[in-house]
Design a protein around this nucleic acid. Structure first.
Ligand SMILES: NC(=O)c1ccc[n+]([C@@H]2O[C@H](COP(=O)([O-])OP(=O)(O)OC[C@H]3O[C@@H](n4cnc5c(N)ncnc54)[C@H](O)[C@@H]3O)[C@@H](O)[C@H]2O)c1
Ligand SMILES: NC(=O)c1ccc[n+]([C@@H]2O[C@H](COP(=O)([O-])OP(=O)(O)OC[C@H]3O[C@@H](n4cnc5c(N)ncnc54)[C@H](O)[C@@H]3O)[C@@H](O)[C@H]2O)c1
Lengths: 210, 210
DNA sequence: GGATTATTGTGATAAATTTCACTAAAAACC
DNA sequence: GGTTTTTAGTGAAATTTATCACAATAATCC
């Protein structure tokens, strides 16, 4: 019943609400929120009802209470430690990004095979890959990001899962196999770009064709 | 009828096929392909039938012909020039990534407001934002990637569209408004991570609850 | 305080997407 | 050359996801 898309919308609602809150909005209506995230008002209400979130007939939803509930649903009530494996282009971008901290996501370490990438002095240290398993166990990290080349991704996945990682965000363009109970979410940037290219090309053809 | 998800699968089929081809596979079956991309064989065949791609009863699909057809559908028969706006963490990762070139995606320039980021000498030059519109028009670029802070994203989007960009891959966590006919695809990394966190947390609860 | 208005909450309905399950045809086998 | 096997192709069915539309109700107005 609760699927990836609904949860993604919850995240978007939350992001939008934080902005509204900052702008001083005390309450917000389903259609305001819908507009902000590109959905319909009925969908906003349906989504909320799915999680037992209710507002006020007339009067909408109280911004701070709503934020509170979404925070809790999305696990924002405590800091989530996350590690990044593969400190190349993408891995570095993630490590350097300052936006996660305010959102309760703390990248606690990076790992890489390449000795040149290792640096224990950084605020977010980059450690050798062979220290990864111990680190995960000791720090009880459950979320990992895979940003290694595709050929290495499955092996890294296996290692992570063996050490106790339960959720993976994967940037490598392959389908990872992991045991039941491990959550894998893929971000394939090339596919995303190709998607744009496809629709631009077909739209262009349609227009020419008309 | 043709939606984002189908096209995303086409991209995945293509990626998998290139690997199969490299491994010397001359033909491939719907269930092999399905397994490689995490789909079902019926879905693979349905997807292909949607695009008029047919194989051979028994004998499956001929790898090279299939690749050819997907290439053409995905606009790989010519190089697609792309620009990146905002050469921060994500923008830099994209500019430096070597994998796009082999895939017919050429990042032709980056743009940034910050003078410190400008460098015309690079293989992929980083240019001042105010040269962006002329560049797009002169080079007839139609695809752009937005990797600027959320507060700047809508303005950048408007500028891009005014200059002729028809498709946008957006990394900023806001919903961009663009005129009809402009394709916008959002990649929200924070949402993707929160998704993983959500499902890890709810799975953990379920297990404890049982 | 009764009428009016605005907005939620949700069953019913519709649309989209996926899977099923079977037909047809090509290849392999005997 | 006929039989068996294998796999594509595809309508039909099932499932999932989104929209509609309206009753319920709280605030506002007069
Ligand atoms: N950068 C992009 O824009 C982009 C775009 C599309 C896809 N991707 C995908 O994202 C992934 C990462 O891309 P990137 O550009 O950051 O790659 P990269 O080559 O810059 O970095 C990969 C890093 O992983 C490290 N590594 C390799 N094997 C490892 C292992 N077993 N354990 C730990 N570290 C290991 C390497 O030393 C390197 O530092 C790749 O799968 C790539 O296909 C990236
Ligand atoms: N880096 C990540 O891991 C990450 C994670 C989640 C979301 N994001 C989102 O991706 C976007 C980019 O993130 P980032 O970390 O690369 O940001 P960043 O701050 O490192 O880089 C942004 C760049 O955009 C430039 N810029 C600002 N306004 C501009 C304008 N009008 N025209 C041209 N350039 C302009 C800045 O000078 C800067 O170089 C942001 O919206 C961020 O919220 C990034």
């Amino acid at each position: 019943m609760v699927n990836k898309k609904v949860v993604a919308r919850l995240s978007s609602y939350r992001t939008a609400l934080l902005r509204f809150h900052e702008l001083g909005f005390v309450k917000v209506f389903s259609d305001t929120l819908a507009e902000a995230v590109g959905a319909t008002s009925a969908q906003v209400r349906k989504d909320f009802s799915l999680f037992g979130i209710s507002g006020n007939k007339k009067g909408g939803y109280q911004t701070d209470i709503l934020i509170e509930k979404l925070q809790s649903l999305l696990g924002k009530d405590r800091v989530q430690p996350v590690i990044v494996v593969g400190i190349g282009n993408i891995g570095t971008a993630l490590l350097k990004y300052r936006g996660f901290e305010d959102e309760g996501i703390r990248i606690v370490a990076g790992f890489d095979l390449d000795p040149a990438k290792i640096n224990r002095k950084l605020k977010v240290p980059v450690l050798p890959a062979d220290e990864m398993q111990d680190f995960i166990r000791e720090q009880r990290v459950t979320i990992g990001i895979i940003a290694v080349p595709d050929a290495a991704a499955q092996a890294v996945c296996d290692t992570l899962v063996a050490a106790g990682i339960r959720g993976i965000l994967n940037f490598a363009p392959i389908v990872l196999r992991a045991e039941e109970g491990v959550v894998v979410n893929n971000v394939n940037l090339q596919n995303e770009l190709e998607n744009v290219i496809y629709f631009v090309n077909t739209l262009a053809k349609q227009i020419k064709g008309k």
